[in-house]
Amino acid sequence: MKKMNKKAQMQMLETIGVIFIFFVLILFGSIFYFKFQEISFQNKQEELLAQSAMDTTLVTLFLPEIQCSRGDSEAEDNCIDLGKVRALQQVLKENPKYLTDYYFNLFSYANISVTMVHPVEHSWTIYEFEKVGVYDNGSEYSAWDRKEATYFVVTLRDELKGIGENNEEFYNKEIVYGFGYLTVEVFS
């Protein structure tokens, strides 16, 4: 009777075992790599959002629609003309199309407001376009993942010294140069 030798079968098992372990290692490597990619991607998103915040802030600070002008001379740095801010608000209220068709190309999803700290506390929203979604029932929800806010202190010039449209008074002081800040919030 021939003695059966099982060496070949052992050899096969060993080969399969090695390949199995190899693929397990590949799997671990892949999981590790994709996790790394995910974190990298999130970092990239944050970086892009920060860049967008910087760019939007820069554009807003130098926006001719609100920047203080000085006749033929160069515009005043870090200064916002409240007369123009109120006028811009009114123009956007009368023409909501400007918001969606024009300024959205400039600011994208963002909220921009001017807040006065001195002589009185008051806030004006220049641009508001939050990323919203709509449920089936028609109600809205915030659809943004991240928000980045930037603040810049600015001089607020009001040549009419607190007299707004239709001569309503929102501060009773003879102050032309007030103090406040610009808030730029961008969404992603």
């Binding site: 629609e65 109120r86 006028a87 811009l88 023409n95 400007y98 007299i163």
Partner: peptide
């Protein structure tokens, strides 16, 4: 196009100045 929007803004500002 930008000019046309700015003119509207200045027209609004002018209204405030005129009322003042």
């Amino acid at each position: 196009k930008r000019y046309s929007i700015l003119v509207e803004i200045y027209q609004n500002k002018l209204d405030s100045l005129s009322a003042y």
